[in-house]
């Protein structure tokens, strides 16, 4: 009688084994040559999870050299990818998401109880057995900060040419189109033609660009808290660039620009709300611009007006207030130039205010970034590695 012995396949424990000779190929396929779209239909941050599952196996066999080697090669490869793609938002966002996910994994599976409070029983079984990787966590944390700074830099460079045009020059309120004097409108359009460049960017284009940044970060599985900080930094940049331009240009210091600005800022605020980003602190970074827009619109005649301006413009320096009042240009018979005595009144009222007396905003200022710990609910043994990654030399253990 024939007996068939059925061999039960050993359960996958969420570890990946490879021969040391294959480390270079692993890093090449998973980091150096990785394109974000290859893993777009899979679990977000799949490369980070795969790397961590390889680290777990090296830890399991107690091979500290293998752990060292893989982590060093990985960090090295990520740095090179970033250097090669130093103006590519998508690549930078992708590696920020993956580096911070790898960092979260090193914490979540460290065995340190402080990081395990949200772990499932299965996740606790998957904790590292032999090594404490706290020093590598520090390296990955520093690397994440570097990548974040690159991401902000890339996004700012993309937005830079759009800001003045969309915030101050384009006419997003249709009814305002006829308010500007002919000279101004002609100058703008002839400037564009002479330059051979595209017609000015609209607010819609700026918002579309912000939307693209946001969607890319979300698609890559970047922690929402980090995405919020990127958006806040970009709003700071919109504020700084727009305000500086306003402070240097007579032709935009008018009542109608004030109206335009207020409308544009409300549209940006609406966008934040739509993306559930209104708690990010982004709109607070625009307070100086909001006040400048209001300053262009309020009455500037009586002593009461001066008092109102002083209590309104808390986020603007005295120098900025005076500059805007001096530049203020009436565009029709209902508006009037601000008198010297009115400006002197404002100066007298605010002379004791303690502030940094500078006219222009520091466009390079960056808020310190915080990376909150974000453990994942994903269980490592459920991960599937698509064949398209060319990692068939990895053995599931």
């Amino acid at each position: 009688r024939q007996v068939t012995v059925q061999r039960k396949e050993k359960d996958f424990e969420g570890m990946l084994e490879y021969y040391k000779e294959d480390e270079a190929l692993l890093v090449k396929n998973l980091v150096t040559d990785m394109k974000p779209n290859v893993v777009s239909a899979t679990v977000p941050c799949l490369p980070a999870y795969i790397l961590f599952m390889c680290i777990r196996h090296a830890d399991y066999i107690n091979d500290d050299q293998k752990v060292h080697s893989l982590l060093t090669s990985t960090i090295n490869a990520i740095k090179k990818v970033l250097k090669k793609n130093n103006d590519d938002f998508e690549m930078t966002s992708f590696w920020l998401a993956n580096t911070s996910r790898l960092l979260h994994c090193l914490k979540q599976y460290s065995g340190d109880e402080a990081f395990m409070t949200q772990n499932s029983a299965k996740q606790n079984e998957h904790c590292l057995k032999n090594f404490d990787l706290a020093e590598y966590r520090q390296v990955l944390s520093d690397l994440s900060i570097q990548i974040y700074q690159q991401l902000v830099r890339v996004a700012e460079a993309i937005m830079q040419p759009m800001i003045v045009s969309s915030m101050l020059e384009s006419e997003s309120i249709p009814s305002l189109a006829g308010v500007k004097p002919m000279g101004y409108r002609n100058r703008t359009s002839s400037f564009d033609c002479e330059d051979g460049g595209p017609a000015g960017y609209t607010l819609e284009a700026l918002i579309r660009q912000l939307g693209q940044f946001y969607t890319t970060m979300a698609d890559h599985g970047l922690d929402p808290e980090i995405g919020e900080q990127v958006v806040r930094q970009l709003f700071y940049s919109i504020n700084a660039v727009t305000l500086n331009n306003l402070l240097l240009r007579k032709d935009v210091c008018s009542w109608s620009t004030g109206m335009q600005l207020r409308y544009n800022i409300s549209q940006l605020e609406e966008w934040l709300r739509g993306k559930n980003l209104h708690q990010s602190g982004a709109i607070a970074t625009m307070e100086p611009l909001i006040q400048a827009a209001q300053l262009l619109q309020v009455k500037k005649k009586t002593s009461q007006d001066a008092e109102a301006i002083c209590s309104l413009c808390t986020a603007l320096s005295l120098q900025q207030i005076v500059k805007i009042l001096n530049l203020y240009t009436p565009l029709n018979e209902f508006e009037e130039r601000v008198t010297v005595s009115f400006i002197r009144d404002i100066q007298n009222r605010l002379q004791d205010r303690i502030e940094i007396n500078q006219l222009l905003v520091d466009t390079k200022h960056t808020f310190p970034v915080l990376f909150p710990y974000t453990p994942s609910a994903l269980s490592l043994e459920t991960l599937h590695i698509p064949a398209s990654l060319n990692l068939d030399f990895l053995t599931r253990v």
């Binding site: 060093t72 090179k80 390296v139 520093d142």
Partner: peptide
């Protein structure tokens, strides 16, 4: 519950030290 395991701290250079060691330099040149 089982006592928590003692794990060996793996020493790592800092990112700045890695940068000083030039490990991030392009090694593609001949």
């Amino acid at each position: 519950r089982p006592p928590s395991r003692i794990r060996v701290l793996l020493k790592a250079p800092t990112l700045a030290e890695m940068e000083e060691m030039n490990i991030f330099e392009d090694d593609e040149s001949p």
